[in-house]
């Protein structure tokens, strides 16, 4: 879509875009280019020579068991938390959309979790899920040693999944509810006149009409599980135990800033960037489709 009316002095017009262009050049494109450069060279931190090594950094990363472990952990985390957060949110949104008494109240409260900083809720969940105090300690009382995120990798993974899903249920709920409410009331009424009951209507009408939102949220949740997970991991597990929760972003951070392996971190960044590019392209392709549904 284009404007019919525009202002003729476009030299002035371009000036309005300059501030943003400066910012994205300085803080996005230059660093991204730098990351590409570093990933192809071997360099000393803060100066010293850069030696061109081609794809060696990528080769060494891709042959490292630690890195594959990190990818696996990220995918497990992304898969389970996305599934959980979306399923619960979908159920809650569909039920809230029935507009029974109290639905306004649920509409307000169920979105609160999304407002909370990941590290803050991580600390809360670290307490709630602590093995020696808090709530899962009760389980440990009955079956000693059954739950310990500090020692058991699977428990640690479950903990960060719980924390992340809790936050993103709120997020997904907002979008699902908006999607349900965007369905014209007359459609539901027409189906009711055709003799279709509540559940039948959900599967025949509402669910098909919100599939675009489902796909859209799927991509967003996966992307966010790569990004927003950092604070949760850092506060709850620090990547442990035994690297069980060393997700990709966390590994980039610890390799780069703690291990000072800039080239390795840069190569990992590039791989993650490619993943995100694929997801973003997928999402925007999809949004085009979404327009057609309307």
């Amino acid at each position: 879509m284009e404007k019919r009316v525009t202002f003729s002095r476009w030299t002035i017009g371009i000036l309005f875009a300059v501030p943003q262009l400066l910012l994205i050049f300085t803080f996005f494109y230059w660093p991204a280019g730098q990351a590409v450069y570093w990933s192809l060279t071997l360099q000393q931190p803060w100066g010293g020579g850069n030696i061109w090594v081609g794809l060696d950094n990528f080769r060494s990363i891709l042959s490292s068991a630690d890195y594959w472990n990190s990818i696996t952990a990220s995918l497990v985390f992304a898969g389970i938390s996305t599934g959980l957060a979306m399923f619960i949110a979908l159920v809650l949104a569909a039920l809230t959309d029935r507009q029974l008494t109290g639905s306004r109240f649920y509409r307000v409260v169920l979105i609160w979790p999304y407002g909370i900083a990941a590290p803050a809720l991580a600390l809360a969940f670290r307490f709630i899920l602590a093995p020696e105090a808090g709530f899962l300690a009760v389980v440990n009382r009955m079956w000693p040693g059954i739950w310990d995120p500090g020692l058991d990798g699977a428990d640690a993974m479950a903990s960060i999944i719980a924390a992340f899903s809790w936050k993103y249920v709120g997020y997904n709920f907002i979008f699902f509810l908006a999607a349900f409410q965007a369905i014209p009331r007359s459609l539901i009424e027409a189906a009711a006149m055709d003799g279709s009951g509540v559940i039948r209507r959900f599967w025949d009408i509402q669910f098909p009409l919100i599939t675009p939102t489902i796909f859209f949220l799927l991509v967003i949740n996966i992307t966010e599980s790569f990004q927003d997970s950092f604070g949760i991991v850092d506060i709850m597990t620090s990547g442990g135990p035994a690297n069980a929760t060393n997700l990709m972003v966390y590994k980039i951070y610890s390799d780069g800033f703690k291990g000072l392996d800039y080239s390795g971190a840069a190569a990992q960044s590039i791989i993650l960037m490619l993943l995100i590019i694929v997801l973003t392209i997928f999402q925007f392709r999809f949004i085009e489709r979404r327009v057609h549904y309307r």
């Binding site: 996005f28 730098q34 990351a35 800039y262 960044s269 960037m273």
Partner: peptide
Amino acid sequence: YFRYPGRTFIFWLIFVTLMLPLEVRIVP
């Protein structure tokens, strides 16, 4: 509100930043 050469290019420059989240360019 303006028509100038490179307008679409600027649009895309900004669009592409969506694919460069902080997490992938922290060190640089």
